[in-house]
Design a protein around this nucleic acid. Structure first.
Lengths: 351, 351
DNA sequence: TCCTTCTGAGAAAACCTTTTCCCAAATTGC
DNA sequence: GCAATTTGGGAAAAGGTTTTCTCAGAAGGA
């Protein structure tokens, strides 16, 4: 009388045993029928499948995992609660894995060693197939020891253990992208305003900046190190455009390459306040391509994008191949950045 | 000779059977020893415990879950890939659960129904104990059907199904906090600049704004609806301070309550550009307390904080009690906001 | 007709842990 | 000294699935 063709409401999950019994076969046969294994008449197989469908049968992953020693889960460790860096990374990882039926345990360990151990233990207990570590800084370790865990580990946008596999952004390449873009636009007095010396990327990018200038025979203006804030961008403009610029001659910059988008925002605002036009008088390029900031600047900010989602995807895929038993050479893989051109540095080079 | 006291490297996890065999007892006894169950000599119990410790034994969660019908896992569904709203919520949830040994599956379903179904099925297959749904908008449904799943579901900062349990921020209360703060500071001509009409919170907050003004006998200036951007903040200032303000008399506002921090930022910048002092001439309050924005404005922005982490924590705890079998009344629980006072609206009322 | 080969399907072990009985030995009570 | 109880510990089932073996019957060959 009732609609027995509709999938069951699954108040309590239906087991293989129930399917088998309703189809009048053993659980072994039922299992084989549903997995396309074993030999049986097409009629039997179809009958079992139909029964399973009708009952809304879905195999219990826990039981499968126990048997297969493979849980189709991975752990994602991060110490970045709010940040905008690890989020795209995480999203990329998740993207790469969901299609393979792999679920992700998200574990925020803050900077707390105890919490880290807690999470790692929990992940191991739950028999994750692998672990990905990510964080808010590429030059800092997570507060956990991931060596010798018995499962594959991949580092993404965080400092790896020696001998591990890591994916990071190519910051030097990203900086080159920016400075070379200025060069191609005809800018010749290019300054660099960036964050504090305690960040490794500050030095990486600064060196790339110097390299490009040197290669092209341009004068090097010593990079200005400060903080990652708008306020520092303001201040830096004062230093760049007020003072007599030491040895480099005293001419004012016609371009500023900034260490992040907030600094760039400060720089642009400060330039406008002192009557300098962006991009006409001075071009500005930021770093991170933080959309909400880059698009709120006037004019909208050209910025280097680290392709973090792609980085995460790559990390996820690599972990999967490791789990599958394929070998992979240890080392740090740098993934290229890309320049997102908006309006803060003049017309595109091919324009 | 070798350091057999150090925990095993756990290349392959050690099982209870191995512990038992090394301790010279049956697995049953070993299990009871480690769980504090059963009866045995203190000596036996300690010997088993010591063996387990030495081997670095950790029980296989999969096997435990299979038996207990409880996986100590919950699924977290979100459609917010990058947002700053659901991140604190997620963090709060995770916080609340980690201490109880519960791990969280993070599932980003974007706005894709297929992806949603995929994730929900995967979670169910993995026998999550419960599901929490969160999202980027409090007035939109996730693209999934979570009714009648067979596991408890909680909604946090997203639109719930009817009859479900949900936690949301008390937007009306938050708006009251802001407007009443202005009132206590002696501001009497309070404007409201907010986002687009398509957002439910825009109306909720606007109504609360009107209510407070009415209660205190202040003139109502019709809320200005626009977008959530800095640019709109700029534009709104133009409308507020240039035009003849319709029926409300023409006097200029001495306070602006903004729908979010970006609008507030635009408002503050625009006020400064036209020579109006903040907070001396005009007070400004934002919404969301997005730290990085609130602290970059000059002066730093007073803003309404939705306490999203606390909201997440509450949701997590409630889910757990539901999983534990305790009943809970359906309905929407509004959690209070709090006002984070910085420097954009003058000295504190008690100053 | 008898032996071999194939076919379809079931029994049972395995994955790892917990828990409920159950039993032999030791202890207690009288 | 004998029955009743307590003590210490083990055997086995359960949880749900997969996979390997095994086996009865049918089909084919001689």
């Amino acid at each position: 009388m009732s609609s027995d063709a509709s999938p069951a409401p699954a108040k309590t999950p239906v087991t293989l045993r129930e399917v088998a019994s309703l189809a009048g076969v053993s659980v072994a046969t039922a299992s084989k029928a549903l997995n396309g294994q074993g030999r049986m008449t097409a009629e039997t197989r179809e009958r079992i499948r139909e029964t399973a469908r009708r009952l809304g049968f879905r195999p219990n992953s826990l039981a499968q995992s126990l048997l297969r020693r493979r849980s189709f889960t991975v752990g994602l460790l991060t110490n970045d609660t709010y940040g905008r860096f690890s989020l795209p990374v995480m999203s990329g990882i998740s993207d790469a894995l969901v299609d393979k039926g792999v679920s992700v345990f998200l574990c925020n360990v803050e900077d707390d060693q105890r919490l880290g151990q807690l999470h790692v233990d929990a992940m191991l207990d739950k028999r994750v197939d692998g672990i990905i570590a990510t964080g808010k800084r590429i030059d800092r370790h997570l507060p956990v020891d991931l060596s010798n865990l018995g499962v594959p580990v991949i580092y993404a946008f965080t400092q790896p253990d020696p001998g591990a596999i890591a994916f990071v952004s190519d910051d030097a390449g990203g900086a080159r992208l920016a400075v070379e873009h200025f060069w191609r636009l005809g800018r010749r007095r290019i300054a660099h305003v960036t964050g504090p010396a305690s960040f490794a990327v500050v030095h990486t990018r600064a060196q790339a900046y110097r390299d490009v200038l040197t290669e092209n025979g341009l004068p090097i203006m010593e990079p200005l190190l400060g903080s990652w804030s708008e306020a520092w961008g303001h201040e830096a403009v004062k230093k760049l455009f007020d003072g007599k610029l030491s040895k480099s001659g005293g001419e004012k910059p016609d371009a500023v390459f900034c260490g992040n988008d907030q600094i760039a925002r400060g720089v642009i605002d400060a330039l406008r306040e002192r009557g300098l036009g962006v991009p006409d008088d001075v071009g500005v390029i930021g770093f991170d391509n933080w959309q909400i900031v880059a698009e709120a600047t006037r004019p909208p900010l050209t910025s280097v994008d680290m392709n973090l989602a792609a980085l995460g995807r790559e990390a996820g895929l690599t972990l999967l191949s490791l789990v599958g038993g394929e070998p992979a050479a240890p080392g740090i893989r740098k993934l290229p950045c890309r320049l997102v051109v908006r309006q803060s540095c003049g017309r595109p080079p091919d324009g």
